[in-house]
Simulated assay, not measured.
Amino acid sequence: MKKLTSMADLEGVRRSLEAQRLEAERLGEIKAEKARIKAEEEKKRHDEANLFKRQVRDVTPLRDVNIKIHKPVKPLPIARQRELDDESVLWESISDEMDVERFLETDDKLSYRRNGVGLEALKKLRKGKWVVQAQIDLHGLRSDEARTAVGEFLRSSVKHDIRCVRIIHGKGLGSIGKEPVLKEKVKRWLVQKDEVLAFCQAPPRDGGAGALLVILKARQ
């Protein structure tokens, strides 16, 4: 085990443990919500079955004469991957209220790396040594539209095995009060996305303060 030699090491451990705790809480909430919906669906099916039995309890069954039994029609194949994609959209829950600052590296770029991601990968990202393979421009989008667009963009990128992307959120010069609203929200969204391994502010040639460079996990 690596010996902790400074307050920075201790702070790194604290951030890592806190990130793991928040991730576990998020997954627990999703699991609980799925269980609740499943229980409601089971209860509904049970109630409907009992209702049918009560409605037909006084009906006299017909005699089994002149009955032709047809072979069941084989159902069409299920697009399982599409179902998984739809489910991921359904359960996507990213908040605008998360306190993202505690997850960010304390450098001038306010970088982020998920627990287990090496510092070297983030250093290369800051220096622009990762090749940007795709990008999305959020200019002109409202907050909800931007959040949906970012989620879909990340899923599509991972599906096509794209590892490095640029998200252009703008500098907020056209917003009320000249505040970079999307800039801060995008950071919150990315921290909560499983697809995201690390991100940092883009170097000047790639958009500077108006964009983020993001490393995504490899396609499974």
Results as ranks from 00 to 15, higher is better:
Q55C: 07
E145I: 13
R114N: 01
K34T: 01
K193Q: 06
M98G: 03
S16M: 06
G174K: 05
E145L: 13
E41W: 05
V73C: 06
C164Y: 15
K68H: 04
V181K: 15
R82H: 12
D9A: 04
S16H: 05
L22A: 02
V56G: 04
Y112C: 01
M1W: 12
D108K: 14
V65M: 06
K53A: 15
L76P: 13
D144N: 12
K34W: 04
F153P: 04
L141I: 03
P75C: 15
R188L: 05
Q201F: 02
V73M: 05
R147P: 08
E101D: 03
S93W: 11
V181N: 14
G12T: 04
Q81V: 02
R114F: 04
Q192Y: 05
R219C: 06
G151K: 07
G177E: 12
L84T: 00
R142I: 10
N66R: 12
S95H: 11
H139T: 06
G210Q: 06
V158S: 08
A202T: 11
L119N: 15
G177Y: 13
C200F: 02
V191R: 10
K123P: 13
P204Y: 13
L84P: 00
G28C: 08
D96I: 05
R21Q: 07
M7C: 00
K129E: 15
I94E: 07
I78Y: 00
D206R: 15
E105P: 01
K34R: 06
V181G: 09
Q81M: 07
K183L: 02
G118A: 14
S6E: 06
V196F: 14
L17E: 05
R166A: 15
Y112S: 03
D47P: 10
E48C: 04
R166Q: 14
P77S: 01
Q192C: 02
R219T: 05
E23M: 03
K123M: 14
Q192V: 02
A49H: 00
R166C: 13
K193N: 11
L216I: 13
L173T: 06
R155A: 08
L122M: 11
K44L: 10
K31S: 09
D108L: 06
Q201Y: 00
L182D: 10
R63Y: 01
A146M: 10
F52C: 03
L197K: 11
L197Y: 09
A209P: 00
K217P: 05
G140D: 08
E29L: 07
S95G: 03
W91T: 00
R219S: 04
R147L: 10
I162M: 15
K123L: 15
F52W: 06
R114L: 08
D47I: 02
V186W: 13
L173G: 03
P180K: 14
V65S: 04
L84E: 04
V191T: 09
A39F: 07
D64S: 06
L213W: 14
R113A: 02
